[in-house]
Design a protein around this nucleic acid. Structure first.
Lengths: 333, 333
DNA sequence: CTGAAAGCGCTAACAA
DNA sequence: TTGTTAGCGCTTTCAG
């Protein structure tokens, strides 16, 4: 509030008997300054309570030491781990972390990027909703790293949903299920496409039937309609687009007096907070979310580094594993 | 990545045949410019793809149009609503929103504040862990608004825990409970103090016994020890510091074969995501979290406004209400 | 290794 | 209402 004139490089310089540029170097380019001089400058700075102004620094240098992460919705616990991983990594590197929400809208996402463009060095886009072309376009002007989305030519960190989906199919097959129904997430969701393709292929290999229904809103509230649709389909196993939806389905099935897993099995994706204490506890595909967030930041950090060369974009694929709980069991009959 | 020379106010000014300051005004001070001129400037700016650089603007004006919210832990769903409310309000005002985590540490919190000080116009401190003195100190140099914490002389938005705690006591009393045990959160938590005081007073009024045990880590994992301690205490009702802890307690009780609410009732605070689908569904104190976040940002926004005068700090108290679910029932015997 | 000087892009007096 | 003139606080050539 009060603005008792901030101490600047000049104040420190005068007091230390050096030039402002030396003070600057002492902070941002330690090697370019004599160790003794630097020590002295730092002491004076400390004494005067000097604090570099990141804005002034960024204005001149072009580097903001800040990065932004854009997430569709904060209320989805699925993003917890990723956010935390990203924040931790950024923090560790002394990078300021901006979190933005896109409200599940590609337009909002795009606007956020344009808006923040000058204030950050790069963006982590989690489960981006933007069309591929738009994203590629933006990537030419901005530093982007994707999480749980892959686009040719762009760096990304994803959790292996293909292999994970196969694990799900194998699990269900081993329990004697002959058919499954995938209750899909948003139509334009890259993840939904991935999951369905793998599920479909895996089921074919195992001689199982597989159908896709939906899209359903990937939230607990979407579970009602999804469950009802699944029941009509006659499949003995439901694979829900994510845990939120799966939990909603579990609820609806309980309301309707359908026994899980006695009459029907339910599987989710993400292993979110709550998946282990809903009733019945949910069988779901888990992955190192935190690691994914960390990796994305890492990518941004190294991209901006001295190499300068834009080698082929890094793509990190993290292993997933199926956590078997109480919502899956032997096929009935 | 590529830096094809950004268009600046000067480019626009030249092209529009006006001075740079006019361009500046057209954007940031529309009234101080002729409507026609402004229109023209905006058109030219649009055509050239001009985008104001917020850093340069902030450096000169001292206003960053950015604010930061500091939260102890992103993994606690309790903060969802508050974060979302704050972000939405900021977004609506065209303010950039920075989210930081303090890892439940007062030191980290303080460091974050110092670190971001120059880059933001104010801070929303959610469930701040800092000692009162430190906070008051910081408030003299920074623009602070507290959420779920009250300190004399500082603006805040809190959910009414006192009245809420009384609601809990009344509910339990009406079910015939003669004693309750409060399983407390962190010792230095302001909320924990509030809750216990109100619980204690309410119980006394109703002629109920009340004991406090703990502190316990306010997480699901803390529930094991908490539940065991509660059982030993012999109380027929448990009030947990928050829902995370309550859910952990529910789990432990289930493991030990203790019937809830048949043998013992359990109440939580916050009505977090999951409180409605754990087993049994949790009776808990709910409040308008989102509103709290919104209010805190609102405070920051108006504080920085033209009034200039620092009237008595605003304190917003939001109503809470008890959501009765299946974890509470008549006292046994 | 260090200093001097010139801005980064914008806004804020002060004139006109 | 608009233009002119200085910077905001820092980094960065370029000399020395």
């Amino acid at each position: 509030m009060s603005t008792p004139k901030r101490t600047t490089v000049y104040d420190v310089a005068r007091e230390a008997g050096v030039a402002a540029s030396t003070v600057s170097r002492a902070f941002s380019n330690p090697r370019r300054v004599n160790a003794t001089t630097r020590q002295h400058v730092l002491e004076v700075a400390e004494r005067l309570g000097y604090r570099p102004n990141p804005l002034a620094s960024a204005l001149q240098s072009g580097h903001t030491a800040t990065l932004a992460m854009l997430v569709p919705d904060i209320a989805n616990p699925h993003f917890f781990g990723t956010i935390r991983g990203a924040e931790r990594r950024a923090s560790a590197a002394g990078i300021t972390f901006i979190l933005g929400f896109t409200e599940e809208s590609a337009d909002t996402e795009r606007n956020q990027i344009e808006r923040l463009a000058r204030s950050v060095d790069g963006f982590v886009l989690a489960s981006s909703r933007m069309p591929e072309a738009t994203t590629v376009d933006l990537a030419s002007e901005h530093n982007l790293a994707l999480v749980n989305r892959e686009i040719d030519g762009l760096p990304s960190a994803v959790i292996d949903n293909a292999s994970g989906s196969h694990q799900i199919v194998d699990h269900l097959a081993s329990l004697g299920h002959r058919s499954l129904v995938y209750l899909s997430g948003p139509h334009h969701s890259w993840l939904a496409g991935q999951r369905w393709r793998a599920l479909h292929a895996g089921a074919a290999q195992r001689g199982m039937g597989a159908r896709r229904l939906g899209p359903f809103p990937p939230q607990v509230a979407g579970g009602g309609a999804a469950a009802d649709a699944a029941l009509v389909s006659g499949a003995s196993a439901i694979v829900a687009h994510n845990d939120l939806l799966a939990i909603g389905i579990l609820r609806r099935l309980a309301e309707r007096g359908v026994d899980v897993p006695g009459e029907i099995s339910v599987v989710g994706y993400d292993d979110i907070f709550g998946a282990d204490f809903c009733a019945p506890a949910l069988t779901t595909l888990a992955g190192p979310q935190e690691e994914a967030g960390r990796a994305a930041v890492e990518i941004l950090l190294t991209k901006g580094s001295p190499t300068g060369v834009q080698d082929s974009p890094r793509r990190v694929v993290l292993p997933s594993h199926l956590v078997i709980r109480d919502s899956t069991g032997p096929a009935p009959g």
